[in-house]
C-alpha cells in the first residue's frame, strides 16, 4: 500500500528559523529517512519553495484563469499531485491547462517550484 505524507506548517514561522535551526531539522529528518531507505520503504521526498513563488490555475471556465499566489480555497481538498521537469513556469502552466482540459469542471492546480528533490529519500 502506498501512502503520501503531506507536510503542513506555518511557512512564516519555518522561514524565521535560523540557518542552524533549519540545518539541524534537516539532519534529524534525514535520520528518519535513512532508516526508511534501509527498510526499502521510502519513495520521493520533496521540499517546496515558499508559497510566494506559487501560481494557481483556477478551472471553472473555458479558459482557466491564472492567479498569483498559492491555492487558497478551503472547501476543496488535495486530491493528487504531479511533478514535472520543465524549463519555465509557462511550460508548467501549459501542462496544467492540458490537465484542466482532460479533467474539466471546477478545481485548481497550484504550480509551486521545488526547492529540494530526492527521488529515493535524502541519500
Amino acid at each position: 500500500m502506498l501512502y503520501t505524507i503531506l507536510c503542513y506548517n506555518q511557512e512564516e514561522v519555518v522561514g524565521a528559523w535560523t540557518k542552524e535551526e533549519d540545518d539541524a531539522c534537516m539532519v534529524r529528518l534525514k535520520a528518519v529517512q535513512d532508516d526508511l531507505v534501509k527498510q526499502g520503504k521510502l519513495g520521493p521526498v520533496a521540499r517546496l519553495l515558499p508559497t510566494t513563488a506559487a501560481t494557481t490555475l483556477r478551472k471553472g471556465s473555458d479558459d482557466p484563469i491564472v492567479i498569483d499566489g498559492p491555492f487558497a480555497e478551503t472547501k476543496e481538498q488535495l486530491l493528487g499531485f504531479y511533478m514535472v521537469d520543465v524549463a519555465s513556469l509557462d511550460e508548467a502552466l501549459d501542462i496544467a491547462r492540458d490537465l484542466a482540459v482532460a479533467n474539466p469542471g471546477v478545481g485548481s492546480y497550484e504550480i509551486r517550484p521545488v526547492q529540494l528533490f530526492f527521488p529515493n529519500g535524502n541519500t
Partner: peptide, 16 residues
C-alpha cells in the same frame, strides 16, 4: 541551489 529556482520562478511569474 535553493535561492536560484525560487528567483527564476518569480521572474517567470512577474514577466507574465
Amino acid at each position: 541551489r535553493k535561492m536560484i529556482p525560487e528567483g527564476l520562478a518569480l521572474v517567470d511569474k512577474a514577466l507574465r
